[in-house]
Simulated scan of single mutants.
Amino acid sequence: MVLGLVAGGALVADTVARDRTEEQVAADLRTQLGGLDTEPDVAIGGFPFLTQVLAGELTSVQVTAPSIQIEQVTLQDVAVDLGGVSTGTPTTAREALLTAHLPLDEVRGAIELPVDLEIVDGSLRAATTALGLPFEAVLAPRAAGRGIEVAVEAISLGGATISLDQAPGGLADDVQGLTIPVQGLPEGLQITDVTLTGDGFDLTAEGQDLVLDQAATG
């Protein structure tokens, strides 16, 4: 019975310490990351918690937030999974995985583009007018480290399909070299996957050996 009471007390102490740490981390993130409107949800994985602290590394930390502004754009449905998070200073993570949604409206509102971007029937399309005729390019987004690059799949002028080298003026360069920057991600995180959705892009970013103190401050 005595051993049971001691074990139960240790479990309560471990849970309380974990809960308080999660609350403190959430408050710190709200302060350090100016783009957060509310405190994020923080969940520290692994058991027991205090043993991880004594060992100097947390097995996993999950951070989720409805949105966060990073420079010109706001990411939605943000989730970050950190593995091997140090408890000392500087705070580091051996690995990190971020998923988020970038609405196309955010891109339009923050970045000046030479064409109008739309998502039509599940395809990303760039549209403008050339020689008095409607010009449209069907684009395929792809991950490009700190941004989203697009590859031209097809173009048309006045409803007729043409090749890229037949595009009038500088339109070929405008659509072929189009890149949507996603600046402001923590240093060391690189976008590794982009999926087109009904109203924007679902992003995945990955990184290793991140210094989180630096990421939080700039």
Rank of each mutant, 00 (worst) to 15 (best):
L3F: 03
D121R: 05
P168T: 13
D81N: 13
T64D: 03
S67I: 00
E112I: 14
A43I: 14
I155H: 04
D193K: 10
T21Y: 03
V120D: 03
G200V: 07
L117R: 11
L75W: 10
E112D: 15
Q62L: 07
A127Y: 00
P134R: 15
S67D: 05
V73C: 01
G56H: 09
I111K: 01
T129D: 14
T38G: 07
A137F: 04
G45N: 11
I155M: 12
D19T: 15
V115K: 01
L3D: 11
Q52I: 09
A110G: 05
I111E: 09
Q52E: 08
V85T: 13
I68D: 02
Q183N: 10
L98P: 11
V53P: 00
D199Y: 03
A216M: 11
L82W: 03
A126M: 11
V175R: 01
L117V: 10
T195P: 01
A55G: 09
A130K: 14
P186K: 06
S86I: 13
R108M: 00
A137T: 07
T217S: 10
S60T: 15
V150R: 03
D202P: 00
M1S: 15
Q52C: 01
L133V: 08
E153N: 04
D165Q: 10
D173I: 10
A55Y: 00
A144M: 09
G45S: 10
A7V: 15
P186L: 08
Q190H: 02
A10H: 04
V63E: 00
L124H: 01
A127L: 07
Q52M: 09
L133P: 02
G218D: 14
V25N: 01
G56T: 06
L98T: 14
L210F: 12
D105T: 13
L29R: 10
P90M: 10
L178V: 11
